[in-house]
Amino acid sequence: MEILLIVVSAVFVNNVVFARFLGICPYIGVSKKLDTAIGMGFAVTFVMTLGSAIAYLLYKGILVPYKIEFMQTVMFILVIASLVQVVEIVLKKVSKVLYASLGIFLPLITTNCAILGVAILANQGDYNFFESVLFSFFSAMGFILAIVLFAGIREKLETADVPTPFKNVPISFVVAAILSMAFMGFSGLVK
C-alpha cells in the first residue's frame, strides 16, 4: 500500500513538471519531437534513479552523522555531475547505440534541476533506501509522462493555425499551463 502511494504520488499527484515545476527547461526545450522527448525521458530516468540512490547513501552515511545536512545541495550537484560523466564514458564503451540515441541529452542532464530536486525530495520524505529509489524512479516516469504528452500535443500544434505572436514557444507555455491545470485534478488524491 505504501509503495502504491509513493508511485501514484510521484507520477500523478506530485508530478515533477506539473506540480513541482522542476525540469521546465528540457520540458520546453526538447519536446518538439516525440522521438527526442522519449530519448530525453529515458536519459533522465537513468540518471535520476542512480543519482538519488547515491545521494541517499551519501546523505545518510556522511551528512547526517556529522550534522552537516546544509551541505546537501553542493554535495548532490557534485555527485550528479560526476555520475553523468561516468555514465557517459561507460555508455560510450558498452552500448554505442544507446550512447548515440541519447546523444546530447546526457551531458545536458547535468544541469537539469529535476534531478537535483528529486534527489533532495527523496531525502526529505522519510523514505528508506528502497522507497527513495522507487520514488525517484517513478518521479522520472512522471517526467516521461509529462514530456511525451506535451511532445504529442506540440507535434499537433505545428499544423494548427496559431496567431503569429503566439507561434512556437508562447503557445507551448499556454498549453503547458492548461496541462498543468488538468493535472491539478489529482491533487488531494494522495497526501
Binding site: 551519501l58 551528512l63 551541505m71 553542493v74 557534485l78 560526476s82 560523466q85 561516468v86 560510450k92 564503451k93
Partner: peptide, 21 residues
C-alpha cells in the same frame, strides 16, 4: 567531507575513463 567526496569521485572517474577508454 566535500573534499574527500570530490576526491573519491575524481578517482572513480579517472579509473573508469581509463578502463572504458
Amino acid at each position: 567531507s566535500l573534499g574527500s567526496v570530490a576526491f573519491a569521485l575524481s578517482v572513480i572517474i579517472l579509473y573508469i575513463s581509463k578502463k572504458f577508454h
